[in-house]
Amino acid sequence: MTLLVTVFAAIISTVIWYKHAPQDELKMGTLSLIYWGASLMWLVDAIFEFAELKSAYFNPAPADLLNELFLGLSVTALGLLIWLAILLLKDPRGVVRQALKRSAKPQ
């Protein structure tokens, strides 16, 4: 479930990046790469788990499924937080820099 949620996040962020390309003011490319990296890593995890559990891998207990869903959503939120931090630190539109300059001006 975590893999599924992350893959959906990766696809949505990639579509948004593609829609605005070649402009990448919002650094959507970075967000999509974060999610794709995590998706690939969870894919490997899933393959190893499937090799161990066989068909039982596709029949998780409802409580496990819910836990995995919460984890997937939390991971998506963490990815968004990392992306937001990168966006504000790099500040490609200069908005934060301008705001800081304005507030630093003597009254």
Binding site: T6, T30, L33, I34, Y35, W36, G37, A38, S39, L40, M41, W42, V75, L78, G79, I82
Partner: peptide, 10 residues
């Protein structure tokens, strides 16, 4: 970005 992002979320 792929490696850092994936590792952080993992």
């Amino acid at each position: 970005k792929l490696l850092w992002g994936g590792s952080a979320l993992l």
